[in-house]
Nucleic acid binder design. Structure first.
Lengths: 217, 217
DNA sequence: GCCGAACCGTAACGTACGGTACGGCTCTGG
DNA sequence: CCAGAGCCGTACCGTACGTTACGGTTCGGC
């Protein structure tokens, strides 16, 4: 699986100035990708390289801090809690799907995933783990309670929440993320995202909707 | 979408020696990732850097040639052609799913996708396009005729083959590829792959299987 | 007002690596 | 046997960039 300590301490004791520096680094990361240079970050953030090294230890530290900083900001919104009828369940799922598509198609997510994937090969840092923990696993952690609530309410029928989640994930993401990461120009308008979210939700319900539920046969 | 000329000329006029060099480069790519060095390739392939530069033009050219060389080797096997009953359709789909999972979980594919994703940001080369064209799009090109044959035989019901394919893709791949690319240790045994292929196929048939077909209501 | 800490801007250092040059070896054709 | 081509091994060059060092400035505390 994944090492554990990837999700602890997100925004632990970051001064405003440090956050601003990380924001600058993040913007540069989106523009330049992994070949951003320490000099460029320093110039963009109007700070000295000495400060960069004192604060973040080096290039890898800066990258890691940047990824964690962004990860601490972008969280998939947690709906759910309201009623447990089919309509609200469906709305929750659609919301999750829509939010997720929005995230993975954003420039920031693409840039972050690109550097994380690039670094995943040589175990210098654990960017991949950080991204995974704050992306796919965070999503699972938020969605599973919804799925289980749906099952308890007799709306869903599955034996393993993990398997059900992964199917939902596949129905939503399909080939979008890998295509975007590989540079395919894939325009995702809000309307297209909404449509995809609805389609994925409907398909998921077709696969996992309970045949015998509160609505009866 | 994607530029067109990414799939022409795969193994165009490569001498055996050149193929051997590319194989060496490929092995090194799997081991070292994108930070492989020209010197290392030359040493591993027992050739001079001069030759490397003469043959491939430079680092980018070598990388591109390596990716194309591997892409020309690994093709998803094309089943289909036999009968058109539900059993053979199901077998074909399972075969596609199984092959695809096998490919995306292989060390070679992971390494190649990693460098392609890493390079996708700055448009120096089109590694991403090459990988995409020989991966996801090649798969679609082989699978769609099967889907359409299934539809003509009354076994499947869908309006758009592309949409149906992408759903199948999502059901098969789920979160596997992104997790592997990001460094998650995800052990896929042959048994697990077989199980996943069967599950994905069954789910796909549940979604797109014709309710009214040759087998009747 | 003085002191030290933190930080900015820039210059300097070291190195890794892409790219090139060159001498020597092997092989093929004449 | 000779000429030339192709290629190996290695040394070399230039540069980009990570990292360090340092002088100058600001600012909070005494």
């Amino acid at each position: 699986m994944l090492q554990a300590n990837a999700e602890i301490d997100n925004s632990e004791a970051l001064t405003e100035r440090q956050k601003a520096v990380l924001d600058a680094a993040l913007r540069l990361l989106v523009e330049e990708g992994d070949q951003l240079t320490m000099t460029a970050v320093a110039r963009r953030a109007s700070c000295s390289k000495e400060t960069l090294y004192k604060w973040f230890g080096g290039r890898d530290g800066l990258l890691t801090a940047t990824v964690q900083w962004q990860a601490s900001k972008v969280r998939v919104t947690s709906v759910y809690g309201k009623g447990l009828d089919l309509a609200s369940l469906k709305a929750s799922l659609e919301r999750f799907a829509s939010d997720w598509l929005q995230v993975i198609s954003s420039d920031t997510s693409i840039a972050l995933n690109r550097v994380a994937v690039g670094h995943a090969g040589s175990g210098k840092d654990n960017l991949g783990a950080v991204v995974l923990e704050n992306g796919r696993f965070a999503l699972a952690k938020r969605l599973k309670p919804v799925l289980e609530a749906g099952r308890r309410a007799g709306l869903l029928d599955f034996s393993d929440a993990e398997t059900a989640f992964r199917t939902f994930f596949g129905l939503v993401a399909r080939d979008v993320q890998i295509r975007l990461l590989l540079g395919d120009r894939l325009e995702l308008t809000d309307a297209a995202i909404g449509g995809d979210a609805a389609r994925a939700t409907q398909q998921f319900l077709a696969l996992f909707g309970a045949t015998t539920g509160p609505q009866g046969p």
